Amino acid sequence: MNRIFHIATVADWDEAQRRGLYSTSTRGRTLAEEGFIHASRADQWQAVHERYYADVTEPLVLLVIDTDRLDVPVVEEAAPGSDETFPHVYGALDPAAVVEAVPL
């Protein structure tokens, strides 16, 4: 099993489970706007949380995604202005691919 991670609001995750589809790319951006869903590897998600979500007051969860359960591509791509790559999910996420939702 290959795992990648995505930080989500509890509200967005709850909605995704009701709809059967998760389509939030990142904080304040949809999959349609961004073109992919931002994700992180195990060694990256904490820094992403600190950098982009530190001031968020609503409840957050860390979605643990099993890439073997995805039916859309995951591509490692460099972040703008950086040599560091991140996994990008090119399509809506089936909630069945999420093996755990850890409260943050």
Rank of each mutant, 00 (worst) to 15 (best):
I4D: 04
F5Q: 06
F5M: 06
I7G: 03
A8S: 15
A8T: 13
V10R: 15
D14V: 09
E15W: 15
A16N: 05
Q17E: 14
G20Y: 11
Y22E: 11
S23R: 13
T24N: 12
S25M: 10
T26P: 09
R27S: 12
R27V: 03
R29G: 05
R29E: 14
T30P: 00
E33W: 07
E34F: 13
G35M: 12
F36W: 10
F36P: 05
I37V: 08
A39Y: 15
S40V: 07
D43I: 00
D43S: 14
D43H: 14
Q44W: 07
A47W: 07
A47T: 07
A47Y: 05
H49D: 09
H49E: 03
H49F: 05
R51Q: 13
R51N: 11
Y52I: 08
Y52P: 06
T57Q: 08
T57C: 00
E58H: 02
E58W: 01
P59D: 10
L60G: 02
L63M: 12
L63D: 07
L63I: 02
I65K: 01
D66H: 07
R69N: 09
R69K: 13
L70T: 01
L70E: 02
L70V: 02
L70N: 06
V72S: 03
V74Q: 11
V74W: 01
V74H: 01
V75F: 08
E77K: 09
E77F: 03
A78M: 04
A79R: 15
P80W: 14
G81D: 12
S82A: 14
D83N: 12
D83A: 13
E84V: 13
E84D: 12
F86H: 12
P87E: 03
H88Q: 15
H88T: 04
Y90H: 15
G91P: 04
G91H: 08
A92E: 04
A92Q: 11
P95Y: 08
A96F: 06
A97P: 06
V99Q: 02
E100F: 03
E100C: 09
E100T: 01
A101N: 06
A101M: 10
V102A: 01
